[in-house]
Amino acid sequence: MKNDSLSERPAAPRPATENYRLGTLVFLMAGTMLFAGLVGGYLVLRYASGAWPGPGLPHLPVRLAGFNTAVIALSSLAFHLAVRSLRGLDARGLRRWLFAAAGLGALFLLLQVAQWSLLVRGGLSFSGTTYGTTFYTLTGVHAAHAFSGVVWLSLIALRQRELWVPAKRQRTIEVCGLYWHFVGLVWLGLYVVLYVI
């Protein structure tokens, strides 16, 4: 029989973690490498050039970005509360906090767009200067990730209509949460690198 060797094998040891969680972690590691590469490039270019920003170029709006950092941190917190509601079997609270997290995420994106238009009007274009290119690339790639996260959060919240949460959706929420906290953490890092130092 073909299957004999298979059935005689001892039971496989329990995996250290579930496949979906492992897959998510691998995906987030890839994302970390993406941002690490971009930030590395940014630092090299920044410290290789003399004046930063160059003469005549606008300074970044540190306070607006600081406020936005608080917005995305609150969004992460809202997600944390959503997971707490899920653990407490409170499906209504789950939906409410998911919407809160998505709304704060959308606000974050709106403020990013406002910041870009402020800088564009201040004379900082995407191409032309290393200062502009690196800034828009880093914040743009991050905003693309945040946009996906907001769409994802909204869809989960919209689908949560019952007073219970199917097991499959619980896994989805866990994966989405890992992703959303990742997006928030990356922004924190970008804020420090781009605005503070």
Binding site: G140, A143, A144, F147, S148
Partner: peptide, 12 residues
């Protein structure tokens, strides 16, 4: 979601 930012690259 990947296509959306990618489609903006030609302008950049």
């Amino acid at each position: 979601l990947v296509l959306l930012p990618l489609s903006l690259v030609p302008t950049m």
